[in-house]
Design a protein around this nucleic acid. Sequence first.
DNA 1: GCTTATTTGTGAAATAATTTTCAATAAAAA
DNA 2: TTTTTATTGAAAATTATTTCACAAATAAGC
Lengths: 212, 212
Amino acid sequence: MTETKIPKATAKRLPIYYRYLNILHDSDKNRVSSTELSEAVKVDSATIRRDFSYFGALGKRGYGYDVDSLLKFFKKILNQDKLTNAALIGVGNLGNALLNFNFHQNSNVRISAAFDVRPDLANTVQSGVPIYPMSELRKQLEDQQIKIVILTVPENVAQNVTDDAIAGGVRGILNFTPLRVSVPANVRVQNVDLTNELQTLIYFLDHYNEEE
Amino acid sequence: MTETKIPKATAKRLPIYYRYLNILHDSDKNRVSSTELSEAVKVDSATIRRDFSYFGALGKRGYGYDVDSLLKFFKKILNQDKLTNAALIGVGNLGNALLNFNFHQNSNVRISAAFDVRPDLANTVQSGVPIYPMSELRKQLEDQQIKIVILTVPENVAQNVTDDAIAGGVRGILNFTPLRVSVPANVRVQNVDLTNELQTLIYFLDHYNEEE
DNA sequence: GCTTATTTGTGAAATAATTTTCAATAAAAA
DNA sequence: TTTTTATTGAAAATTATTTCACAAATAAGC
């Protein structure tokens, strides 16, 4: 795998670039400069050039970057040329919203299965996604070869559910619970903690007055 | 304001510490070491000590940290000793989920007003929060002195709504749209981009096999 | 074809964040 | 009381990331 290890900070920006390239493509632009990209995605142009350079010389001096080939390149890099199935665990409020949202636009990620403890939800279909009882978690993940889960369960069951999911072969977790779950080294967790984000925002407001 | 400017990376971890201190407090623990904290919040213990040290000597050598005084300290720092009102703009799927969630547990942030363009939503109450028509955005933000908004509108109106909100005195934006909105230097934006997070996760899975 | 304007890619410098190390000190044990 | 153990705080080292600044390459205009 791991062609050349790109800095983590760069990796996190790739989807941002990818998204904007799609927009350019859709509006039939065929070239773009790092300066122009910079304004749209709010990342310094030198950082963009540096980020791109980890993948080789993708641009042309005096010209910029060819939108189509850059887009094709990032599509590949980000695995957006294949459909990735993900499972959602916990169909509460937030879970439901995510089911409905389902990452459609510009993304080849799809929630293809969901799980919940509530007996009245099990074996129904919500927003086009089949809901399975929690007891089938491991089996379904295995059978459907799902490697990514979105965790929207109550905090107190988060670790157990995580352990189960990993037993079912999961390799990546988008964790919406405030618990920092423990996972083996080969499993990746991306935390999305809404309360945290708000508190951080408040902190910045009170303590950093100007600038980024 | 700005007592001593703390690194951004540290600031983002403060709510994580705060949250775990609350848990310790609730379970009547009265001391905690950086090592113990480290395991719970998954941050290296040296990083934790370093983070804390920006605020002075909060601990005691050979002993650790006193949970209650540390908690009290962070509560103050994070402004959690007062209630902060926020407005939610865009009561769609995600907006609704957030209204319902309303940041209750352990957080003194409350959504006290919401806005939507849909005429049938205007002047109703959802999950205990009054919904105003979008036309009243600026006025209500001013009147209610709301400094923080949660942006869950469609991307194509995100910039306009943002401009309006800022005209109404907003200083911080939790932005759930994929658009990187433009704001003046004294306004802070915290982006939460779910599609991005998933794509980043997929990238890491495919390209970084072991370790953090 | 020559000249000028653009724009990349990248070394080097600057900045930011993490980690190592260890002296100092508190608490617990002997 | 003395010794041992635990644990912080801070300096220094390391690692990661961003930014500057400019040569090299190309495009566009004349």
